[in-house]
Amino acid sequence: WKVTVKGVEYTFDNPEEAKKFAEELAKKKGGQIHYKDGEFQVH
């Protein structure tokens, strides 16, 4: 499971962890999460 933040990729074994990480980042940066092709992208 991948989380991509401004072109930087983070990989997680667990989808729950990936989702949590993406949500935290989106909150911090005031961005939005897009889920696409099996990965979370924070913009």
Results as ranks from 00 to 15, higher is better:
W1A: 08
W1I: 13
W1M: 09
K2D: 02
K2Q: 07
K2A: 03
K2G: 03
V3I: 04
V3N: 00
V3A: 00
V3M: 01
V3E: 02
V3H: 00
T4I: 14
T4G: 01
T4K: 08
T4A: 02
V5T: 08
V5C: 15
V5P: 00
V5E: 12
V5M: 13
K6L: 14
K6I: 08
K6S: 14
K6P: 05
K6T: 11
G7H: 02
G7P: 01
G7M: 02
G7F: 03
V8N: 07
V8H: 11
E9P: 02
E9K: 05
E9L: 07
E9V: 13
Y10I: 02
Y10N: 01
Y10Q: 01
Y10M: 02
Y10A: 01
Y10T: 02
Y10H: 04
T11P: 07
T11C: 14
T11R: 13
F12E: 00
D13M: 06
D13G: 08
D13Y: 05
D13P: 08
D13R: 04
D13I: 05
N14C: 11
N14F: 05
N14M: 03
N14P: 00
P15A: 13
P15I: 15
P15W: 15
E16M: 12
E16C: 14
E16R: 08
E16H: 11
E16F: 12
E17R: 04
E17S: 11
A18Y: 04
A18F: 05
A18S: 01
K19C: 14
K19R: 14
K19I: 10
K19E: 07
K19H: 10
K19Q: 12
K20W: 07
K20Y: 07
K20T: 08
K20F: 08
K20N: 10
K20Q: 12
F21M: 03
F21D: 00
F21C: 12
F21H: 01
A22G: 02
A22D: 01
A22Y: 02
A22W: 03
E23D: 06
E23A: 05
E24H: 10
E24D: 12
E24M: 12
L25E: 12
L25G: 02
L25N: 05
L25K: 03
A26L: 11
A26Y: 04
A26N: 03
A26G: 04
A26M: 08
A26V: 15
K27E: 11
K27I: 10
K27G: 09
K27F: 11
K27Q: 12
K28Q: 13
K28D: 13
K28I: 13
K28E: 14
K29N: 15
K29F: 15
K29T: 15
K29I: 15
G30V: 04
G30L: 05
G30R: 08
G30M: 08
G30Y: 06
G30W: 04
G31W: 14
G31N: 07
G31E: 06
G31K: 03
Q32G: 08
Q32D: 13
Q32N: 10
Q32M: 09
I33R: 02
I33H: 03
H34W: 08
Y35W: 10
K36M: 11
K36I: 14
K36L: 13
K36S: 13
D37N: 03
D37Y: 01
D37R: 00
G38C: 11
E39N: 09
F40L: 05
F40R: 02
F40K: 03
Q41N: 07
Q41K: 07
Q41M: 12
Q41E: 13
Q41S: 09
V42L: 05
V42H: 03
V42Q: 05
V42A: 03
V42G: 03
H43A: 08
H43R: 10
H43E: 11
